[in-house]
Nucleic acid binder design. Structure first.
Length: 491
RNA sequence: GGGCCGUUAGCUCAGCUGGCAGAGCAGCUGACUCUUAAUCAGCGGGUCCGGGGUUCGAAUCCCCGACGGCCCCCCA
């Protein structure tokens, strides 16, 4: 971090030289009249003659990303948040200021004004009448052809990645548009956004290992939430009928191309509906997002094209298994399921429940083939301690997961609102935990108490926003859509 | 936690069976007032990821470690 190489020394020297020339290398506010995108869209069609006839004055600011110096003139490209444009410095126009220009480096941030013209090669260019250094850059940027390729450095120094790799900036923008569009969609359907605790005394609402932290004044350990679910449903008890929360969850699990320890989740709940309502609702949401953000329902994804045109197939979990050659007689028989899984090389543990074993088989035999959007519905009850049983088949719950590109993106169910049954379900989770299942749910007495006041029948859904952004930006790794992914310390 | 691969100049990368550490870009000096991978001439720049070992000699071979990537495991 402390390395001082010649390139930095040279720039520090220039910084002193610039002060001598009365140019503040760490400047002041600078009011612009245009950004580069506006210039291109408004004047991009004007030809050389009309630009000469009625000159257009612009004042812009941005970072120098390329420079071609001549003796008494220079071309540079300036990049702002909207794009880039070429600018042209001439000694006969700038006079004394030209010597300041000579001290500029690639990476410096400048403000300038001038008039638009077209070069010999017809590139729209600003002829600089005056300019001002706004910030001197002391470190050299990566080279212009290959840019910054080193993946580690791109993640560690994302600011450099953002300067030189436009596609990264585009993902950041798209992510912002996706999140805004989700809020628009939900708010237009009368949902309100709420914020529930990130620091929880009992981490609930999901199966995962939590991060532990400590509150000094209270003298207790707290957990970073693994899900907001139980708090959001307390709000259903409290009388809110349509709520959502779009924020971070934290899970103390492995890191991979699909997992970051902190990730963004949307959860929403709607009273007086069930999971059948949520499937078309989800289709509508995804359709809206694709149309708004991508402008198409057909989106590229690796070598495939995903077609989001609804409706999407609904396949019961058991049917999905049987279709992939899983024998029907193992579905309700834990011992048979266990030995079949073992025979087929699927890692299942002796303490796993039947539902857990079927889930493992599903991940191995079915999930890889779920490229196009598919709802897998009706899960075994032991996998879903917060979901409501199916009326006609109490070993299953009213739950679906949406898979796209082999990734689980949505999990939703009809909410269990019977406090006695909820207490029992927690109880069997506690037993699983005592048997060594680290990720089993914990008992939450207050949540049961809340249900005893009466929670309306409701449906709830969670959407992994990072994976959704991956899908809509055709990104292979979650680290490409999380601006600052978690890494080990540098040294 | 396991397996495979990677780490050489600011950046992108060569460097073969072990024999003086290289190129392009970037930088510096000079020339150049329409270039856009500007051009031309010259110059500087290295903890070869770290530590051991083998060897007359290691960027190169061996061992240990760090960090990263991919694939498993776990999870969403």
């Amino acid at each position: 971090m402390e390395e001082v190489n010649d390139l930095i020394k040279q720039r520090v020297q220039k910084l002193d030289d610039l002060r001598e020339l009365d140019s503040d290398p760490y400047g002041r506010p600078f009011d612009t009249t245009h950004d580069t995108k506006v210039i291109h869209s408004q004047y991009g069609k004007l030809d050389r003659e009309s630009l000469e006839k009625s000159p257009i004055q612009v004042t812009i600011a941005g970072r120098i990303i390329a420079m071609r110096n001549f003796g008494k003139a220079a071309f540079a490209h300036i990049q702002d948040s909207a794009g880039r444009i070429q600018v042209y410095f001439r000694k006969d126009i700038l006079g004394k200021k030209f010597s300041i220009m000579k001290k500029l480096d690639i990476g410096d941030i400048i403000g300038l004004n001038g008039i638009l013209f077209r070069t010999k090669t017809d590139e729209l260019t600003v002829e600089v009448k005056g300019f001002e250094l706004l910030t001197k850059s002391l470190r050299p940027l990566p080279e212009k052809w290959h840019g910054l390729r080193d993946i580690e450095q791109r993640y560690r120094q994302r600011y450099v990645d953002l300067i030189v790799n436009p596609e990264v900036r585009e993902i950041v923008r798209k992510r912002s548009r996706i999140i805004k569009s989700i809020r628009d969609f939900l708010e237009s359907r009368d949902f309100i956004e709420v914020e529930t605790p990130m620091m929880q005394q009992i981490p609930g609402g999901a199966t995962a290992r939590p991060f532990i932290t400590h509150h000094n004044a209270l003298g207790i350990d707290l957990y970073l939430r693994i899900a907001p679910e139980l708090y959001l449903k307390r709000l259903l008890v409290g009388g809110f009928e349509r709520i959502f929360e779009l924020n971070r969850n934290f899970r103390n699990e492995g890191i991979s191309t699909k997992h970051n320890p902190e990730f963004t989740m949307l959860e929403f709940y709607i009273a007086y509906k069930d999971y059948n309502f949520l499937m078309p609702f989800t289709e509508d949401l995804f359709k809206y997002l694709a149309e708004t953000v991508i402008g198409s329902l057909k989106i590229p994804c690796g070598d495939d094209t995903i077609d989001l045109t609804p409706p999407w197939p609904r396949i019961p979990l058991y049917d999905a298994l049987v279709r992939k050659g899983v024998p029907e007689d193992i579905l309700r028989d834990r011992e048979r399921a266990f030995s079949w899984a073992r025979q087929n090389g699927i890692a299942v543990k002796p303490e796993d429940s039947c539902g857990k074993i079927l889930d493992e088989i599903f991940k191995e035999k079915v999930e890889p083939y779920l490229i196009q959007p598919t709802f897998i519905i009706d899960y075994p009850v032991e996998l879903s301690p917060l979901a409501k049983r199916k009326k006609d088949n109490p070993e299953l719950v009213e739950r679906f997961e949406l898979f796209i590109a082999s990734r689980e993106i949505v999990n939703a169910f009809s909410e269990l609102n019977d406090p006695a049954e909820q207490k029992q379900r927690f109880q069997s989770q506690v037993e699983a935990k005592e048997k060594g299942d680290e990720e089993a749910h914990r008992m939450d007495e207050d949540y049961v108490r809340a249900l005893e006041y009466g929670m309306p029948p409701a449906a709830g859904e969670g959407i992994g926003i990072d994976r959704l952004v991956m899908l809509l930006t055709n990104s292979a790794s979650i680290r490409d859509v999380i601006i600052f992914p978690q890494l080990k310390p540098e040294k």
